[in-house]
């Protein structure tokens, strides 16, 4: 074991990981985080905390991680390259190490164009693959990007996101390969609705042997309604929702739609567990955290291993 990460511990013991996420509030009220946290108690092994997701200003991922840590969670610090240069990034990584944050998820970050500050200047000094490598160099080599020695290495389990459905499809596994080469130890995927395409992607991943060097946690998001399904299909970049899914949601009465959404989600998880190389599930119930427990229960993911 390299780190104190819960995810790493469970993976090493051959277990199946369950993670979920928590979106920080648009304000300074810590209770929002605690409330969301309470809904996930005993349900997940680690919690992602988003970093100004969709480029909308929110409480920092870092501080929200600390609040969750105080509650006994093993938070995953999400970090985007949009808002910080290599100086700020390395400094935050050191801080995370000092405060006992055990996991980091390295992301490029959504473009600010669609957020609440579209006039902002973006940074993108380094990209997500370079960020992965930065954490690895700090942790394993004890070196800063500038070459100087780190006194007191930050010990973080290194993760990244991957979208199996983005284009061009043919290089998607190659790109994951680059992430693994850079030092990535776990991957959380974009929400999976198109099982066929995901299965194909996993084949490509296994062909390269990447699933053995990096744990793939498959992402799922339950639909609340047919409206949400349509929105995900048409308006979220890089999202792949097959027409069959929309039809299935349309096929049930309005008041039953959220139930159907959960059902689809549970079935998806069950199918994902059968795919060789899938080492865990990442449940993203967007502003619907109260359903994570139910989904995990129905999918047979509970109880979680004790730590």
């Amino acid at each position: 074991m390299k780190t104190k990460s819960n995810i790493e511990r469970i993976l090493e013991s051959g277990g199946f990981v369950v993670t979920s996420e928590c979106g920080p509030p648009r304000g300074a009220d810590p209770e929002v985080i605690r409330k969301k946290g309470n809904l996930l108690k005993g349900v997940v092994d680690a919690v992602n905390v988003t970093d100004n997701q969709t480029s909308v200003v929110r409480m920092s991922s870092f501080s929200s991680c600390i609040i969750l840590k105080e509650m006994g969670f093993d938070p995953i610090l999400q970090m985007v390259c949009r808002d910080r240069n290599r100086i700020a990034i390395q400094s935050d990584i050191l801080g995370a190490g000092a405060l006992g944050i055990n996991n980091i998820l390295c992301l490029s970050g959504d473009h600010q164009k669609f957020g609440d500050h579209p006039k902002a200047k973006n940074v993108f000094d380094i990209d997500s693959i370079q960020l992965i490598n930065t954490v690895k160099i700090l942790r394993d080599d004890g070196k800063f990007l500038g070459g100087e020695e780190v006194k007191g290495k930050p010990v973080l389990f290194i993760g990244a996101a991957e979208n199996p459905f983005a284009d061009p499809f043919e290089i998607r596994a190659a790109r994951l390969g680059k992430k693994v080469k850079a030092g990535c130890e776990f991957i959380q995927t974009q929400c999976i609705y198109n099982m066929e395409k995901f299965t194909k992607w996993m084949e490509m991943v296994r062909d390269r042997g990447l699933h053995e060097r990096c744990a793939i946690l498959a992402g799922v998001t339950p639909f609340k309604s047919v409206g949400m399904a349509k929105y995900m299909k048409n308006s979220v970049p890089g999202m792949d929702v097959p027409d069959g899914m929309i039809e299935r949601m349309k096929g049930v009465a309005k008041e039953k739609q959220s139930e159907e959404g959960i059902k689809i989600c549970v079935e998806t998880i069950q199918k994902l567990r059968e795919i060789p190389g899938v080492r865990g599930i990442h449940i993203m119930a967007i502003e619907w955290e109260e359903k994570v427990a139910e989904i995990a229960q129905s999918a047979g993911l509970l109880p979680r291993p004790q730590v």
Binding site: A166, D167, P168
Partner: peptide
Amino acid sequence: CAKSLLNGPCGGSSNG
């Protein structure tokens, strides 16, 4: 690249 990524593409690339 809108994000000047040296190791792209990001997950937002869709249909070119």
